[in-house]
């Protein structure tokens, strides 16, 4: 839809296109947060334990971003999005990348099964976000900004992400439901203590075995 709007603006008022492009880029980056929220809800719906870890990680990221924005505002009172459009979008995409990391790391750590559709959405969007962060990082540099090369990366990555989404979402594959695990209601502290004991004992053996006192 955004692309269609841009095409309309380009056709009727090509002079306004450049400004319009960057403002709609912010819009697309803002909408990207909705994709991340949806990924969070869909993947961790049935896993309250892992969801708690992700929630705290995301809150930490949010707190870090707020802190960064506040300190940046205090340090630079003349900042405006129109003068630093690439920087602004780069920062928005970087935050998205960190949020995605905050979701994917627990997904991998807790081995949470993800259906083909959702896996495709995460992979496609993750690829697009990482490519955007990398290209916009170069684009925000004064010596790279005027060069057209870096601008090509984002549209190409977008097409590639759409291709991944198209393949992954071609047919409906629901998220695998967690299997009924009879031992799951065990006391968390007991499980954590057992695991801690195993790892600590292994570290001690390693130190003793290798000759450390």
């Amino acid at each position: 839809m955004v692309s269609l709007l841009r095409f309309g603006v380009f056709t009727f008022d090509s002079g306004f296109y450049r400004t319009f492009y960057w403002y709609t880029e912010f819009l697309a980056a803002a909408v990207g947060y909705a994709v991340i929220v949806e990924i969070y809800w869909q993947t961790l719906r049935s896993y309250p334990g892992a969801a708690r870890v992700v929630r705290i990680l995301l809150l930490l990221v949010f707190a870090a971003v707020v802190l960064k924005v506040v300190t940046a505002q205090l340090g630079n009172s003349t900042w405006s999005p129109s003068t630093a459009s690439a920087q602004f979008e780069r920062n928005m995409r970087a935050v998205q990348a960190v949020l995605l990391l905050g979701i994917i790391i627990p997904l991998a750590y807790y081995a949470i099964p993800v259906g083909r559709n959702l896996r495709g959405i995460i992979l496609g969007y993750g690829f697009y976000v990482s490519a955007s962060v990398l290209s916009l990082a170069f684009g925000s540099l004064p010596e790279y900004g005027p060069k057209p090369g870096w601008r090509l990366v984002q549209p190409v990555a977008y097409v590639f992400a759409l291709l991944i989404w198209c393949i992954a979402l071609w047919s409906y594959h629901p998220n695998p439901e967690p299997e009924s695990e009879s031992t799951i209601d065990r006391d968390y502290r007991l499980i954590a203590e057992n695991t801690k004991r195993i790892v600590s004992r292994a570290i001690t053996f390693l130190r003793m075995g290798s000759g450390q006192p």
Binding site: Y47, Y110, E181, Y188, T195
Partner: peptide
Amino acid sequence: AMREHATAVRRNGDLQFATEIRLALRF
């Protein structure tokens, strides 16, 4: 053992973030 732990606690509502981080660091 760590994989078993992760699988056992991922649906546990009592999960403690600090304990998980400590375990992950120890591992």
